[in-house]
Design a protein around this nucleic acid. Sequence first.
DNA 1: CGACCTTTTGAACTCCATCAAGCCTCGTGG
DNA 2: CCACGAGGCTTGATGGAGTTCAAAAGGTCG
Lengths: 240, 240
Amino acid sequence: MSFDLPVTRSCIDCQYGKHTPWHGVPARRIQALDRLRRRRGLNEGNTLFRQDAPNEGLHCISQGVFSLSITHENGTDVLLRLAYPGDTLGVRAFLRGTPHQTTAVALTEAAVCTIARRDALKLTQDAPGVYKELVDRCLAEMDRAETSIVEQACLSNRARLCRLLSDLLERHGKPVGTRLVARLPISRGTMAGMLGIQPESLSRLFSRLKADRLIALSGRNVSTGSLAALRAEATRAADG
Amino acid sequence: MSFDLPVTRSCIDCQYGKHTPWHGVPARRIQALDRLRRRRGLNEGNTLFRQDAPNEGLHCISQGVFSLSITHENGTDVLLRLAYPGDTLGVRAFLRGTPHQTTAVALTEAAVCTIARRDALKLTQDAPGVYKELVDRCLAEMDRAETSIVEQACLSNRARLCRLLSDLLERHGKPVGTRLVARLPISRGTMAGMLGIQPESLSRLFSRLKADRLIALSGRNVSTGSLAALRAEATRAADG
DNA sequence: CGACCTTTTGAACTCCATCAAGCCTCGTGG
DNA sequence: CCACGAGGCTTGATGGAGTTCAAAAGGTCG
């Protein structure tokens, strides 16, 4: 499901440097880090790790978009969130030493750098700052998870779609004239999964957002004239 | 909102010992721990800490039931989970050094032991085991949060109510003849809040569960003839 | 161009929210 | 001891939103 790529630069020079957890690695260990790391490419649809599989280390995304999803015991798939370059995957399972709770799949062509579990353990033992950084990421993610629970409970589907769209536009969008334009990295079905609704319902929501002139879209191309208006729509109460 | 209680025994002898995070405290520190700890009582409805308030330390529940809830910016309250004796509250805010993300309210008369933030920081610095234990709790809670997101998305309200009821019966229930009987610690309104539905809808769900003979109830007293049947109902797909 | 997949649209149905009224329980006070 | 009132809980009727099934319309690629 993946193929090796050549390593071209040190982790410490990673283009997503601000976000790597490896900042706290002591200088004398950086070489080891670079040597131990394995860089891989994944094609669209490839799986990085699977729910219930044992943790095999830490994965830093350097390219592409990943989905993190859970399959419920009754067979339904739920997409929890998207992950982007600079994000580190597998942290919770790594810290707890438990199997993965989620499945990570590449939604586009992607590249990741992986530090095997045993090596990462050694590195974190040498560098408490790295451990703290990893913990902090998990805790921040926890806040996000709770926020998402709250929004699921108290916002309308329309509001949550607006939120999702504004997030996607913010990340993938480019200004074209007065508008912000983006090509969505995910299919309608996937978006519906993120919102916990059916693709048909999503399609109808889209029609209404178009009718209300909050967005324009054709196929996977979306645009908005005002990101602020989208965001405002996203915080309204269910009855708004 | 709370009143002091006398300290009667060492944290290390806590009746919820298995669950205290203080196991890893080195022997020489235990006296300090016991001295620094403050034991308080709370009445039903009292607030232990409030969302957005700064973290003031770690709170171990020794008696009573607490609710952890979040108020969305649009004013809606969402009840995330219940906490019981043996649970430690405020851990995430303590670890991150950020304000509380949730509000903790006593649903019954309650007692908590509190270690002030500054003291807890010292103790965890001396005992990496305690730090790890606290982290582990947060990570486990994260798994729970994600599970709850998934269930919210892919289970019917009926299934989720069955899950909630089976959890409550498991925790509060006592065998009476062939049945398991419990007095619920929370009101209908609170339960509805936990499921993200209206009290009227909850009431109708109850009627149906009664009609289906999965439970019997009058007022706050619930009972079931088969916890297994309840659990089975709780894992069914939405269309089940 | 045609085959295939994704997306949209339509119609019927289910489920939940809402508003409104009635009921039950418990505590108060006569 | 009973009448009363308040709050929590239940029940009914209605409307809106989402699901489901079915079919049509776009897109993409050989």
